[in-house]
């Protein structure tokens, strides 16, 4: 399969198979005016199989969002057809306004002007808890 090289944008590499589509939706790539390539189940020396995303525009990306889904990916930032930066993500200790607490009894569901804050409590299993009510952040609530 051949996908053209991009001039300006991102190549998101080393995505665990199945996660590219999640990242695609998380970043709202279905709503941007540029070329996007989502390639799944690509052969990889390092991972066996991997997913890959190419985005043909330097859009604003909140990297913490991606790190929560898949902290081991690499983000190549491409400018004028050259990789100017390789970003290794790390799972963040704290998330601010990256997810929404799913607990209907949480104070964040009623109080205005409150940041949605989550703390990493289990690095191995990527578990975050709400700063206020301590409910677990569900992956589907990362927005």
């Amino acid at each position: 399969m051949v996908v053209e090289a991009i001039k300006n944008g991102y190549v998101i590499d080393h995505i665990t198979v199945g996660n590219a589509i999640k990242i695609y939706h998380l970043l709202g790539l279905d709503n941007i005016d540029c070329e996007v390539a989502l390639i799944s189940y690509v052969k990889s020396k390092k991972m066996g199989r991997k997913d890959l995303l190419k985005i043909g525009k330097l859009i604003d990306i909140v990297f913490d969002k991606i790190a929560v889904i898949d902290p081991d990916i690499t983000i190549n930032i491409v400018k004028n057809s050259k990789i100017i930066e390789k970003k290794q993500l790390e799972i963040p200790e704290k998330l601010i306004n990256v997810g929404i607490c799913n607990n209907p009894r949480c104070i964040t569901s009623s109080e205005r002007n409150l940041d949605q804050i989550f703390h990493l409590v289990d690095r191995k299993n990527k578990i975050y808890r709400c700063h206020y009510c301590e409910a677990i952040l569900e992956n589907s609530k990362i927005a």
């Binding site: 607990n103 009894r105 104070i107 409150l114 700063h131 206020y132 009510c133 301590e134």
Partner: peptide, 25 residues
């Protein structure tokens, strides 16, 4: 009744806050 409400209160209060119960928390 809302869980975590005392955390919000303690951030804004000038005096000590005692939580006398926040929902089921």
């Amino acid at each position: 009744p809302k869980e975590g409400a005392p955390v919000v209160a303690s951030k804004r209060s000038l005096v000590p806050i005692i939580n006398a119960g926040d929902g089921g928390h």
